[in-house]
Design a protein around this nucleic acid. Structure first.
Length: 354
DNA sequence: AAAGCGGGGGG
DNA sequence: CCCCCAGCTTT
């Protein structure tokens, strides 16, 4: 029996019941695929349901504000996905009359759609014979066929794409692609895969050679840089101050409290002497209270943030915050703005008590 | 070719 | 607690 027949057989009796598997509409498949990039199904599923509910069609998504899209995306991470999603929705709605392209080549031109996602949409929706290569596919192919080329090297990417195309069931690309990814996610798992009941046990090179734990091979990860964030939580007459993150760093276009970054962790005395703080405003020491004695550690894939929240109870909002860099808002309205999980967690603990 | 970009779950 | 996961864009 061929590799793809075994795989499809396994899929037909083991696949999960997922909402995006009940449709072939490109809008829904595109939405689910963008959401599931670097994201587990369990984490992305509630977001998918909320998006479909809120934006039943690509036109609804296109008409929404970016802020609303980001708010709905809040907590899912990699926010460029949400910004690109919104950009592409507007493009498809306004330039393509709401119709997504039908081919891999055209799909790949959409912002936020790379090789994997273009292959996924083209095959799942239109059965185009193009092979998907995601993390699951790397794992399955490297183990079954014993390929030890690093999956994140230039040669590895090419080699695995070629292998994936060679093994593809070209008549049934839609089912096959979903089958190999589902098999990787549920059966050929990263840790403790179910080799004992695996349909490929006899031919799996990794299993036969005892290399299951080693494959797939990945090159070293990026180093994590530590940064020290100090947030100014202004409390005054039921109002507070926020700012939108600009530029190209983390959390672009999300909101936060006014931020003072320091070289290292600072005490209250040190903080009040910080150049960047003094430049912004001067506040009597007794009006400033540190919310968290120990810095909150917030770890991202490439950053370690050490964060302190400085609560400032002021009789009135300083004029320093009345520039276009900041927004003075009613405290309870902060829930309307898209914020990083770090800020959301703080808000949950801090009830802006007067 | 390498770096930047989030957050959650598992051992 | 540390370690793992991993697609697209930008540099």
């Amino acid at each position: 029996m061929k590799f793809y027949n075994l795989l499809i057989d396994w899929y037909l009796s083991n696949q999960r019941d997922l909402p995006w598997r009940k449709t072939k509409q490109p809008y829904h498949i595109w939405l689910s695929e963008i959401m599931l990039q670097q994201t587990r199904v369990a984490q992305g599923l509630p977001y998918y349901l909320r998006f479909v509910e809120e934006f039943p069609s690509v036109f609804d998504l296109a008409e929404a504000s970016e802020e609303k899209v980001l708010k709905l995306w809040q907590g899912l991470g990699y926010y460029s996905r949400a910004r690109n999603l919104h950009f592409t929705a507007k493009y498809v709605a306004n330039e393509l009359n709401g119709k997504f392209p039908h081919t891999y080549k055209e799909l790949k031109k959409l912002k936020g759609v790379g090789d994997y996602t273009a292959s996924a949409i083209a095959s799942i929706c239109f059965n185009e014979p193009v092979a998907v290569v995601d993390g699951n596919v790397y794992r399955v192919l490297s183990r079954v066929f014993g390929v030890d080329t690093p999956i994140n090297s230039t040669e590895g990417i090419k080699e695995f794409k070629n292998l994936a195309e060679e093994k593809l069931d070209k008549e049934n690309a839609s089912v096959y692609n979903q089958a190999i990814m589902e098999f990787g996610a549920l059966h050929c798992k990263p840790k403790n895969p179910y080799c004992i009941t695996c349909p490929f046990q006899a031919e799996c090179v990794a299993f036969q050679q005892g290399k299951i734990e080693e494959l797939p091979i990945k090159l070293k990860k990026t180093k994590v840089k530590t940064k020290h964030f100090n947030y100014l939580v202004v409390v005054s007459e039921g109002k507070t101050v926020i700012q939108q993150r600009r530029g190209n760093g983390i959390w672009k276009n999300l909101y936060q409290f006014p931020l003072i970054e320091t070289e290292k962790e600072v005490s209250k005395t040190q903080f009040l002497k910080e150049e960047n703080f003094l430049q912004l405003l001067s506040v009597p020491a007794e009006k400033v209270n540190l919310f968290n004695k120990k810095p909150i550690k917030h770890v991202l894939s490439h950053r370690k943030l050490m964060v302190k929240f400085w609560v400032m109870d002021l009789p009135e909002i300083s004029s320093a915050f009345k520039t276009k860099e900041f927004e003075v808002i009613q405290q309870e309205n902060i829930r309307l703005y898209p914020v990083p999980v770090l800020i959301e967690k703080f808000i949950e603990q801090f009830y802006f008590n007067k």
